[in-house]
Write a protein that binds this DNA or RNA. Sequence first.
DNA 1: GGTGAAACGTAGGCCGT
DNA 2: ACGGCCTACGTTTCACC
Lengths: 150, 150
Amino acid sequence: MSALDDTDRRILQVLTREGRISNLALAERVGLSPSACLRRVAALERSGVITGYRAVLSPQKTGVGFVAYVTVGLNAHTKSAQEAFERAMARAPEVRECHNITGNWEYLLRIEAADLAAYKTFHTEVLGTLPQVNAITSYVVMGSPKDQRA
Amino acid sequence: MSALDDTDRRILQVLTREGRISNLALAERVGLSPSACLRRVAALERSGVITGYRAVLSPQKTGVGFVAYVTVGLNAHTKSAQEAFERAMARAPEVRECHNITGNWEYLLRIEAADLAAYKTFHTEVLGTLPQVNAITSYVVMGSPKDQRA
DNA sequence: GGTGAAACGTAGGCCGT
DNA sequence: ACGGCCTACGTTTCACC
């Protein structure tokens, strides 16, 4: 895996915003012939720089009307408690992200649900019933002035 | 904009994981002819259900070795203070997400930087110099056992 | 929603630098 | 080692059923 040059960075910049652009258009955009461009993209995929492509959906139009970030503290810092918690998060569809963080709590979750009632169900039925959990704080997202998730 | 049926949901499910799949393969996967499938995808794009497509990059391989979530409190809850802060966030490349949240602080940021030193620079040179900001707390991401961003 | 055909894009061998 | 050219093959797209 060699270092990225400027052309690679331009390719990545375009693909990050227009993941379904045709190779022909991409090649023109970065000033390369189609074949040279395709070879670079293939190399970026093979070397793991590009890990995949995703369609980005509108939360509102797909029934997600409630988003919150939630900090979670565990009552035991053992490996088995962490693993059990992470398995539970992996199973829960409302949990879109689960980050292990430094600070007063162990985890930060991003939760997406249909509405506040659906979130309440998740909060009490899932988080509330896990024996490892001893602190839950919810931060409801009112808006996202910048969101470059990818 | 009509409601999504099961076929639409199957299309979205596939495109969410394989954003660059060919229409031919997608059609076969959801049990439709290529033209019918393409018409549905086009309709989903036009109606705003699909807002775009993105390549997903490996943070490590693109020089991002440091990720943190940061809560920010403002010293004034005026519209102009919020707008000024949001403009500054929009300009800062390290800020990948800026969410307006409920709770003790106004904002939750996701910051991506090359390393701790680069983050420190952002922390002091950008956040520390904004007159609207009066509380900054950083939560360094040590790992993300689940991450379905996009 | 499906069919078919023309237009278009991809993928890979080959050669030059 | 990397870019451009060429071409066979696959895919998209659209008028029509």
